[in-house]
Nucleic acid binder design. Structure first.
Lengths: 372, 372
DNA sequence: CTGAAAGCGCTTACAG
DNA sequence: CTGAAAGCGCTTACAG
């Protein structure tokens, strides 16, 4: 055990721990006021620090007898490696960045899923908001990356499509995982759902019920989800030979207030839609709100569907028919991708697989056949 | 500059930087591939590492000439202190824990506010969820605290009232700030709003409009907000000599589904309330949803008020009258409290002030005089 | 399969 | 006001 010059170990207190087994050692450990270090474990297990390090890091080349002995010492002293020392000495940080910038709905579940995986692996999550419009974003981010040396970064939409951010990360040599991007960056995996297919299915459901005038509230420009959902909608409509009326397609931004504006306009049309497909639940809630305000009976006078199955979907009346994204699962996959591929020297050691997770149609009360 | 034994600096490449001013040095800096270290700055500024450290840490005793010179070198090399080295050597971590366990609504705004303050001070936020029911919470938390050595922890409700958590933190010697607790822990500051006064004001508003049968949906047991809001309600009712009907007081837990159950029961009463005061916006939204389902006209047939001014308050129809909590401001105050009082040796160096921030009544569309 | 030495990039405790 | 030395608790690069 090393100690600072100011606090030498009193010579009157020898360290019998090494010579005595079991109980005695436990008592020693309990008395200890400062957390045990790797050297403490090494002394107790009567091996070198390096060997303890090997055991703690699950390296293969340790005899099982030695491993056993070290593990017992770790237990006894309740040893936890000091993260900062590990990071400073090694080339991994055990830190994952979760960067976000867009609407907040996604974040909270995602964070929960990622934190769960991190905790199981001794990793930690640094959640950082970024304002894409900030002029000093790249400076700020570069500075953060140098201070923290993240092992990887998860980019929540729409950050995965931000050139500046992706370049900053690439320059810093930090692996990233994009969530639901428009287009995949070279060498970086992405995680998402099949927005296109899900939208087609939900559109098909509305068509099957007899709807023909269906309004569509777009999401924010620059989000992969926005484009894929709209394509799914139009493709399904065309496939079923139902025209898409341009007057019934409105630009939104995934936020409630814009949804209100768009829905107001649609419902004020001479021939209003009998159904509205909103690109997310917040704007679907907006459509419902507008409909109530105009005295419509839901879902009789208007069907509304959303996307995400966010909390709001179950808080409006009628309950929203929507698509459930497996947000927690996406988070877990993303976090594992980073953890399992650290340490690495330059870029990903193996090609990282992108994945498209399954999502689920949630049929609730906000849809009915159109009044003929 | 030090370097690992494996990578000695080629002797053919001397380091002219120290002898040459300005431009040349900048060029040197640009070529550099690894981030500059404190020693690099010291060499360039021709001072000792310790002096650079003093400047970087804003210690007083540095002549302004020296300070200037060091600052220029820092600029030139774009030096950022390595967080891990700082933490390992010093006794602060530049890390603040944001622990939460309850409903998520609060978290996202709070996180935004705290992150903002942290970024300005070179701090970082570790957001960690804790399940109060977990049997190994204290083990997990103790382990985390030893790995990370947080400079302080912010406890979102209801964690500030969790004995086990507070004790674990105290044992680890980590300062904490409680947000909106039931009762203040000794030696720890708390941040909140005056729930009691706000509830009285909002209750008074309903009474002024003529409401006499007012239902109340309680929050989760164990939250400070739950108790203080209920006390505010009953005290105001009593002060105005209006009886509180026990049949119109329902146990909730701040979540929508429970709000639905409670509201159903109240509205099924022989003499239903003309107004419902919900302890938060989610349960207020539940009351609104139930009212819609029962075919009531809002706010004519039923007034509803909530608390928090969370996003849902503006997404339901009619728009919710509620109380706006200054969540971002609370977050900033809490984060600053920790930052400004680190480093410290044992507990808070000075008595930390608790604060009660102002909140605001937001009058919207969900309230009207009772139908007589 | 195991260990001794050096180093990661800072700060502390001293000394002047 | 400034600096030289030692140390924080780990891992890397070697050597055996």
């Amino acid at each position: 055990m090393t100690s600072r010059p100011g606090k030498p170990r009193p010579p009157s207190e020898p360290r019998p721990a090494e010579q005595r087994p079991g109980e005695r050692r436990l008592a020693e450990a309990a008395k200890r006021t400062k957390p045990a270090t790797l050297d403490d474990v090494a002394a107790l297990a009567e091996v070198s620090a390096k060997t303890v390090s090997r055991v703690v890091n699950n390296e293969a080349s340790v005899s099982s007898a030695t491993r056993e002995r070290v593990m017992r010492a770790v237990e006894l002293l309740d040893y936890k490696p000091n993260l900062n020392a590990r990071v400073l000495a090694g080339d991994r940080s055990f830190l994952i960045g979760l960067f976000y910038g867009g609407p907040g709905g996604f974040l909270s579940d995602f964070q929960a899923g990622a934190t769960e995986v991190c905790r199981d692996s001794g990793y930690h999550l640094m959640v950082e908001p970024w304002d894409s419009d900030s002029t000093q974003l790249n400076r700020d981010m570069a500075s953060l990356l140098r201070q923290l040396r993240l092992d990887g970064v998860i980019l929540l939409p729409p950050l995965g499509d931000d050139r500046l951010i992706c370049n900053t990360l690439r320059d810093a040599g930090i692996p990233m995982v994009q969530i639901a991007p428009c287009e995949q960056a070279p060498d970086s995996p992405s995680i998402g759902i099949d927005d296109y297919a899900a939208t087609r299915r939900l559109t098909s459901y509305l068509l099957d019920l007899g709807h023909r005038r269906i309004g569509f509230i777009l999401g924010s420009p620059g989000h992969g989800a926005t484009e894929n959902r709209y394509r799914g909608f139009t493709d399904e409509m065309h496939a079923r030979r139902v025209p898409v009326d341009a007057a019934l397609v409105g630009r939104g931004n995934f936020h409630f207030p814009d949804g209100v504006v768009v829905a107001e306009r649609m419902l004020a049309e001479r021939k209003p839609p009998t159904a509205i497909f909103a690109s997310n639940d917040d704007t679907a809630a907006a459509a419902i709100s507008v409909a109530h305000r105009r005295g419509l009976q839901l879902p009789r006078d208007l069907s509304v569907v959303g996307f995400d199955d966010s909390p709001i979907a179950s808080m409006v009346w009628p309950l929203l028919t929507t698509v459930r994204q497996p947000v927690m699962a996406m988070a877990r996959v993303a976090a594992r991708l980073i953890i399992e591929n650290t340490p690495r020297k330059h870029g990903w050691p193996v090609p990282m697989p992108s994945s498209l997770l399954d999502c689920e149609l949630i049929l609730r009360d906000s849809v009915a056949p159109p009044r003929s």
